[in-house]
Amino acid sequence: MMRIGSRHACLPKANARRPVRSVTLMVACAVLGPVAAHGTELTPSADSSRCLPEQSLHWRGGTLRLENDLFTGTDRNYTNGVALSVVSRDLQGALRPECLPQPIAWYTRFIGWADPEFWRDSGARSASQNIVVRFGQSMYTPEDKTRTDLISDDRPYAGLLYLGLAWNRRVQPQAASYEMLDVRELTLGVIGPWSLAEQSQDLVHRVRGIDRFRGWDNQLRNEPAFQMAMERKFKSYTEGAVRPGWSGDVIGSYALRIGNIETAASTGVELRAGWNIPNDFGSYPIRPGAENRPPSGVSDLRRTEPQSARAPKPGAHAFLNLEAKAVAWDFSLDGNLFRHSHHVSRRPWVAQAAIGISSQWIVAGHGVRLAVMRVWRTREFDQQIGHHAFGSIALSMEF
């Protein structure tokens, strides 16, 4: 996992209510230290004009995700989330930061400085990596939309607008029957009125003819938001773009997220069963982590004639996703980190289950995928009445 242990100078003493402050500021110091990381060369320096196509950045597709609890007949707690992600083609061979756009090259060197083991064996023939850029917004509200005063025994009004940059590294260990996906995602954004959560919700409610929430004047205050997410997933190894025919598989995962958006550790499992299951690492609600697809090399085979046996194929499958999480900080419950704000009594343990259906097709030579799921989440704070549920839909397309 991530190693930032030598930067003790960045660590302040934490007080009783802010146990995550020291860890959060530690990450901030690391993130703001790309100059130090800049000297970490992953490969010998070379002229960028000699970069091979598979060492340079080329986009291959995107995904639009929408989540809302109106799908389940409620309008409270985590009430809406939207995210647009773009995914690069696989980068093959030894990693060459000088072949990448400068901000991504800086992030690559930062990972090499903070977590050197992440790039171990990155040039192996069984390894590939890709890049995901994600832009999104999330909003949270209490249950009573009519009150204009601060509701002290319900969650705060809160919004988050963010931009995430993730590295996915996929590798099959030597002589192993399984493969792994390691993810490092840095998320930067803003909490508070600058997130535009109030304006976004008002617009949607006005278009749909729904009464608007009247307590947004009590929302959390503006402050920068950041998070580092580290995740590993693993499943049985599969060649090609799909697991052909009727089959099933199991995907395991564990993750650590650090920052003032959320600080938490989680573990989960996904069960899939269906026809032509895609060779990826599963479906899930919006969260930091992988936006992963079948390797781009086999994805390109959808255009070949005659079609290769390894090419993408239409298919559909059902999935069940289970996750348990230990939470040390959640901005939507704990409030602002850098100033006093409304907060509630967060519960340290949260469980989540999602069930859904995913299907993929080839349309005019492009890969298209639709995933629909319903998500149930246990109580997140002591004053919450019952569990929470919301719906999620994701539409993906290969360019």
Rank of each mutant, 00 (worst) to 15 (best):
M2N: 05
M2W: 01
C10A: 13
L11A: 07
P19S: 11
V20W: 03
R21C: 00
T24S: 03
L25V: 02
P44V: 08
S45C: 10
R50H: 10
S56Y: 02
W59M: 12
L66K: 07
E67T: 06
F71E: 01
N77F: 11
A83M: 13
S88T: 01
D90G: 00
P97T: 00
I104Y: 07
Y107A: 04
I111C: 04
G112M: 01
A114P: 09
W119G: 03
W119E: 06
R120T: 11
S122T: 12
G123T: 02
A127F: 00
V132F: 07
V133G: 04
S138G: 12
K145G: 00
T148S: 12
L150H: 01
D154E: 15
D154W: 02
A158Y: 09
A158I: 12
G159V: 06
R170N: 13
P173Y: 00
Y178H: 13
L186D: 11
S195P: 14
L196P: 00
Q199F: 01
S200K: 03
Q201M: 11
V204L: 12
H205V: 10
H205Y: 02
R212G: 08
Q219K: 06
N222R: 14
M230L: 12
F234D: 07
F234K: 08
G240S: 05
A241F: 01
R243H: 12
P244I: 03
G248L: 01
S253M: 15
I258R: 05
G259T: 03
N260R: 08
I261D: 07
S266T: 06
S266Q: 14
P278M: 10
Y284I: 13
E291M: 15
N292S: 15
G297R: 15
A309W: 03
P312Y: 04
A316P: 00
F319N: 08
L320H: 06
L322Q: 10
D334V: 08
L337I: 05
S341L: 06
R346M: 11
R347V: 11
V350R: 05
G356H: 04
V372N: 12
R377V: 14
T378D: 09
E398K: 10
